[in-house]
Amino acid sequence: MPASVLVVDDDPDLLASLDFVLSDAGYAVSTAADGAAALRAVGLAPPDLMLLDVMVSRRDGYDVCQTLRAHPDPTVRRLPVLMLSARARREEREKGLALGADDYLAKPFKVDDLLQRVARLAGGGGA
């Protein structure tokens, strides 16, 4: 059973690219284009990892992250989150981690770096 990854980003090109890369690496990938859709998807079936862009519409990444951390279901509460952001300053990284992200990656990133982090957070990686 491959580990499942939910990718949340409002850039359709990046979403398609990450979908390809992660599927290719053996993960079961689902996507969401905004924060509300992401939370709905988590409610239906919590993935093993969420790649979450900060600047998404309808509930931004910080908001989604905090909602997850306050969720009554412990599986959802502990869901690993890798935050992706076009904001790269140290204080912005600190803010993301303080609000519940498990890791923080500034755009643009190296795909190998991303895959390493995903493997670490999703518990072992794809098939």
């Binding site: 755009k107 990133f109 795909v111």
Partner: peptide
């Protein structure tokens, strides 16, 4: 910072074309 967003998708797409061999229709995309 303004360049980060467009670069993110560009970097991933370039990596795919460079490191993987997707079928033609995916490659075109």
């Amino acid at each position: 910072n303004g360049l980060r967003r467009p670069l993110a998708a560009l970097a991933v797409a370039a990596w795919i074309l460079d490191n993987r061999d997707p079928p033609p229709e995916v490659r075109r995309r």
